[in-house]
Every structure is written in structure tokens, then in C-alpha cells.
Write a protein that binds this DNA or RNA. Structure first.
Lengths: 232, 232
DNA sequence: ACTGGCTCACTGGACTAGCCTCTTAGACAG
DNA sequence: CTGTCTAAGAGGCTAGTCCAGTGAGCCAGT
């Protein structure tokens, strides 16, 4: 089971009705030109129009609520949240899921800051975790592996060392997208060694508590790691 | 529970069963030391243990799935996602909601980059939206208002002008937390005028397509706007 | 001994019908 | 005009039922 996950083989599509409903409702909101504060049709009505049961529709509404698109109020109805912008953003993201340049952009923004903060705030524990990740990656590479696990550990350790839960949450948000690029990058010949070397530079800057150098090294690292996809 | 001090009259807390269930399941995951790949108890079992119907539990599971905590597979069960880290992060965030310094940190990181990108990529339309926001804020202030609406519009226009949907999504993610700080900051005497002035500096840099100046102006602006909370 | 196919006991997916609480507008009494 | 009450309609939740995937184990055919 873990093997399949490592290889990136996503389980085949498991169709879920509520997911389709989310898409349809999003489309409806757009087509009906609904503004923040407007009400969605009543559940019984919507369910009938969409040809599903209320229970299933309720799941879709929960999903939309978690996504921040609507706010369901007992006795009143489902009102559009103040920021319907997220709706279009989410929709856009779902459509073309891998906008590599944009992901790299977001990643370097976040991780550059994270590296700088890590340099400023790291404890000895943090440093130990970073060095451990380095060791894991080195071992993986000398065993002929790509070092993806160590790579992941390293970036997680940096994130933890920055001691900023809000930024950490944002990283978690784009972590999945990054994962896809990570595998490809480390698949290039000679790339794992390069990557390890630039990891070492980042770690050194953090060890020396030099925020600027850490940010710079991280930016250089991400650039190195990211240029692969750009040629595709 | 504190009053959510928002202009737009937030409805009083409306308890929803599925929300409590999410919390309980999160707590269970932690207490049971479940690791990624592990299975949650079966729906029928869990529903009985939690004393709710399967339909309601299904809503909680949808919420957890949207949050990225689990992955529900037909015929197999609900498996914990690879990154359970988000679970603890989410939990932490929900608990002490206002980590102001961290929010400011994340905000300046994102908006600094966004401003630079906006300067590099803005179209004439984007510029028009930015100027419009400036106009709205000026009108609000001269009417004796705090200018929150214009302020919000301005930052949204900048985000749009950066043309980076991934970064935009990250901004949307922390937008709600920022909202709370915005009101407080603009409530300070003389603050709206200062804020408007620094908005103008940002807009000018973007008009001149000068990324560095834009980022710098944005950072200065956020610093100005944020120092209030730090003295509290 | 292996392979393939079958079964069956699980798992979640979805629907239905019904009753509850909450909200709100409008009727009605003062 | 004002305050109160009520009923319609909104969402919240439950219980019961059936459908559809999954996977372990059995058992025949090779």
C-alpha cells in the first residue's frame, strides 16, 4: 500500500456525488450572477432540481462551507460568503491543476521567508532535525535512490524551525502540489546530488543564524529544483 | 466566547453537529496515535460510538476530506492522508485564533511578493481597479468613515493584479484573519489618512512598474498598519 | 502447487420519509 | 401605530433501506 503511494499512483477515480454537486453549484452561482449575501435556493428545491436527495446535497453544502464559499444559516438558508472570489479561485485551481510557474512562485515566496525565519529562530532541536534530514537524504542517494524522503523531511524541518504556524499552514496548503514537482525534479540524472549540496548550504546558513544567506540559499535551491519543469 | 467585532454583524454562533464531530474525530486521531495510512473505524461503528446518525457523520467526513485530513475510499474506509500535520495545525489555529504577530508575518510575506508581481504584471485594467479602490477609500474617509471597504478593495485589486492564482488562494486563506486586524487598525485616530497615503505610494510604484519599490512600500504599509496590535 | 473464478462479509454511497428546531413575515389584538 | 402570536418554510438530524465497491478465503481446474 505504501509502495503505491510512493510511486505516485493515485487510486483510480472514485466518483462522489457531492463533489459533482459542488462543481454544479459553483457553476450555478456564477451563471446566476449571485452576489455576496444572496441566498441559494432552498435545500428541498435545490435537491430536486439537481436530482439528488437532501442528505447528499447537505454533504455538498458542508463542503462548500468548509471551502468558505457559503454560510449555511438555520431557518434562513445558505448565504454566499462575503468573499465569493474564492469560488472562482477554487474553480480555476481545479481546472488546470498544475500551473507549475505559479506553484514555484508561491513556493519560493513562502520557503524563502521560512528559511530566513528558521535562521533567526532555530533551536538546537530544530538544527538536529535538519541535520537528520540531510543524513537521510545522503543515505538514500548513496543507496541509489532519489532521496525524495530526505528531501521532504528537510523542507518539513525548515518549516518547523521557522516557528510560524500560520506560514506552516500555508505551506501545508501547497505541499500537495509541490509533491508532484519534487518527484520529477529528483528524477533527473545528477540532480539528487546537486539538491543535497544546496540543502547543505541552506542548513549551514541556518546553523550560522544568518537569515539573509538562508533565504538566498533557499531561493537558489528552488530555482535549481524548478528549472526542470520549465523545459517541458 | 467573545463577540466577533465585525461591521457586518456576524450571526451568533450556530452550533452544528458535524463541526463538533470534526473536533472529536481530530481528537480521536491524536489520542489513538493514528498514523498516515491508518483506517478510521467504520462509519456504522463510529456513528454509534459518537451517538449520531450515519448521515451526520458522513457530513463530518466530507468536512475532514475537504480539509485534507482523510481520504474516504469506497469499500475500504476512511484512511488518514499522508500529511496529518494539517490536522494539528488546523486544530491549533482554531484554538487560539489570533496569533497576531504570525498573521502579520504571513501577510507581509505574501503581500510583499504580490505587490512586486503586480508592479511587474499589471494591466491597465488592473491599474484602474486599484485607482478605483483608492477613490472609494478617499470618499469613505472624507465622509468620516474608517475606509475599511476601500482598504479591502485595494488589497483585493493588488492581489488580482499579481495574476497568480496560487498566491491569491493563499491570501484568501488568511484573509479572514486579516479582516479582524483591519478594523482595529483603522479605528485608531488619524490612521485612515496615513493608510491611504501609503496605499498611494504602493499604487504609484505599481503604476511605474517598479517591483522593488512596490514591495518595499507594501512592507512599510503593513508595518504601519500592524503596529497597533503589538502595543496591546 | 499454482491459478483463476466465485462467494460473502465487510466497507462506504445514496435515498427516503419523517420529525425536530429556528427564523421570519404577516395577522391580529391592544 | 405597536407589540405579540402564529404558521409557513427554512435547515438539522435521525432511522431504515438498498446499492456498489473491496478483498479475503474457498475451491475447482490445470
Amino acid at each position: 500500500m505504501e509502495k503505491t503511494a510512493r510511486l505516485g499512483l493515485e487510486r483510480v477515480s472514485r466518483p462522489r456525488l457531492y463533489e459533482q454537486l459542488v462543481e454544479q453549484i459553483l457553476a450555478y452561482i456564477e451563471s446566476a450572477q449571485l452576489k455576496p449575501g444572496d441566498l441559494l435556493p432552498a435545500e428541498r428545491d435545490l435537491a430536486e432540481r439537481l436530482g439528488v436527495s437532501r442528505a447528499t446535497l447537505a454533504q455538498a453544502l458542508v463542503a462548500l462551507e468548509v471551502l468558505g464559499v457559503i454560510d449555511v444559516q438555520h431557518g434562513t438558508g445558505a448565504v454566499l460568503a462575503r468573499r465569493p472570489s474564492v469560488a472562482s479561485v477554487i474553480k480555476g485551481l481545479r481546472e488546470h491543476r498544475s500551473r507549475l510557474p505559479e506553484i514555484v512562485e508561491a513556493r519560493s515566496t513562502l520557503e524563502g521567508k521560512l528559511a530566513a525565519l528558521a535562521a533567526a529562530r532555530r533551536t538546537d532541536e530544530d538544527l538536529k532535525a535538519i541535520d537528520h534530514a540531510l543524513g537521510v537524504m545522503a543515505k538514500e542517494i548513496s543507496a541509489g535512490d532519489r532521496g525524495t524522503q530526505g528531501d521532504e523531511l528537510f523542507h518539513e524541518a525548515i518549516t518547523a524551525a521557522a516557528h510560524s504556524s500560520v506560514l506552516a499552514q500555508l505551506m501545508a496548503f501547497i505541499a500537495e502540489m509541490i509533491l508532484e514537482t519534487r518527484m520529477e525534479s529528483l528524477g533527473q540524472p545528477g540532480r539528487p546530488e546537486q539538491s543535497l549540496a544546496s540543502h547543505r548550504r541552506i542548513a549551514d546558513a541556518i546553523r550560522d543564524q544568518d537569515p539573509e544567506a538562508a533565504a538566498e540559499a533557499m531561493l537558489a535551491h528552488i530555482e535549481l529544483v524548478s528549472d526542470v519543469e520549465l523545459l517541458r
